[in-house]
Amino acid sequence: MSLSTDPAFSALKNNFVCGYRDISDQSYAGVSGLHKPTGQAINTTNGAGPHNLQLFILSPEGVVLTCLPGYWNSSDLVREMQLAVKLNEVWHNQTLTRSQKDAMFRQMHLSHVEQHPGDMVFRSKMQGFDQKYEAKNRLYASDCIRNPSLITDPSAKKLPQEAFKTTDEIMHQRMASRPFQPYDRFDVAAYVDYGRPIYDKHEDYRNANGELMADRDPKSEPRIGNLQAIKRNRRQTANRTGGWNGVRYYGGNSGRAAYRNAMHAAYGQ
């Protein structure tokens, strides 16, 4: 848990008023294996599990300065806290008009990406299963994919990494289009929408080396979250891939191929 380690822990303890809410019943929430406080934990990448965890930094009036979807490394989180402090200064600057503040908000978020150190960018590689989800389900419509023409086979075991943006870049680009929004009007569902709704590393089913134990079945793990999200996702995937879901499509696979070709013509190469 990155929040319990420094530098994030000290920053939270000394400089923030903290709180949380359980989002299990929210439509945008995803699903995870159930983890007790006594269970094992594992490091993961920035932005992993965006549907299950969101870290908001708000002004005291409830204006969203930034929102980090999913897990974030402790040092990287503090870097984003520093940006939020600067954004809060802009928000409270009485010499600026609202449009000037919004422009500065966009510029500061977008330029922050350029300042991220290499190790932060490395930690922000999108999870492979989330990349596959984006490539399979919205190759030409996803803002997570920088260059769809590099992905010749969305079902390939290994996808070309240069085709994808990193999660730190996606986060700042999405924030840049939401300048100083009140928390209660922030569109969480759209903001966190990338990758699979289920995220689980099966921490309690791994040995000390981090490998899954052969004699234990991770699928037997109890789950927490919005279980309807999995069913909904399966229906949507079936729709997109042509799997039988009780609905017939005129044109069948050729119709969907034509749609993909049209999308490719519009957005590709």
């Binding site: 008023v17 903290c18 949380y20 809410r21 299990s24 930094i57 806290m81 927490i224 979250g225």
Partner: peptide, 28 residues
């Protein structure tokens, strides 16, 4: 760290203390 479950309360304390609010959405 004290964790508020009410955002209104957290914002009120943040205003009094001149701090920002760190607000988590999580499962569980």
């Amino acid at each position: 760290i004290h964790w508020y479950s009410s955002l209104n309360q957290a914002e009120s304390v943040a205003r009094q203390q001149g701090k920002l609010v760190f607000w988590i959405h999580m499962l569980g």
